[in-house]
């Protein structure tokens, strides 16, 4: 059914993603699909990495660790963005094309009042991506 499952991850808050990561890995096992972990970072030093290269290396290590833990094939795909706070959605939509994913599984917070002004990333991706999107509430 699915061959490549894209999972956006925020390496600074990986613990909040446990549910979405678990779902993605279960489905990947079920369909024999590859999980592609996508991370987005600015080129400026962040709490995760000092340079884009270091960020990519950390994402790769993350993918390796998850692959070993859940026995799925996994890849990492790092993206840079000039202004991640506002460019996250378009960057992730671009990543869908670049990774060739046919399913996106992403974590999202429980909607509250601010979602009327700032729609959640999960909602926006589901609204615009050309592939299936599964939004997993935290």
């Amino acid at each position: 059914m699915f061959k490549r499952i894209m999972v956006p991850v925020d390496l600074a808050h990986a613990e909040r993603l446990e549910k979405a990561l678990g779902v993605a890995e279960d489905l990947a096992q079920h369909y024999g699909a590859t999980v592609v972990y996508v991370g987005v970072a600015a080129a400026t030093p962040s709490s995760v990495a000092h340079t884009p290269a270091e960020f990519a290396a950390k994402l790769t290590a993350f993918a390796k660790a998850r692959a070993a833990q859940s026995d799925v094939t996994a890849e990492a795909h790092a993206m840079t963005s000039h202004d991640p706070s506002t460019d996250l959605d378009p960057t992730l939509l671009k990543a869908v094309g670049e990774t060739g994913a046919d399913l996106v599984i992403m974590a999202s917070h429980i909607p509250n009042i601010t979602d009327y002004v700032w729609p959640s990333n999960g909602g926006t991706i589901a609204g615009h991506a050309k592939v299936s999107v599964m939004v997993v509430r935290a």
Partner: peptide
């Protein structure tokens, strides 16, 4: 499988630079 596509989305490795080692985490 994990090591072949580690940075497709990023403009190539950034090359040599002289990172300052500090205990401070951003």
């Amino acid at each position: 499988m994990t090591d072949e596509t580690n940075n497709q989305g990023i403009p190539e490795p950034e090359g040599a630079s002289d990172i300052i080692k500090t205990d401070y985490d951003i």
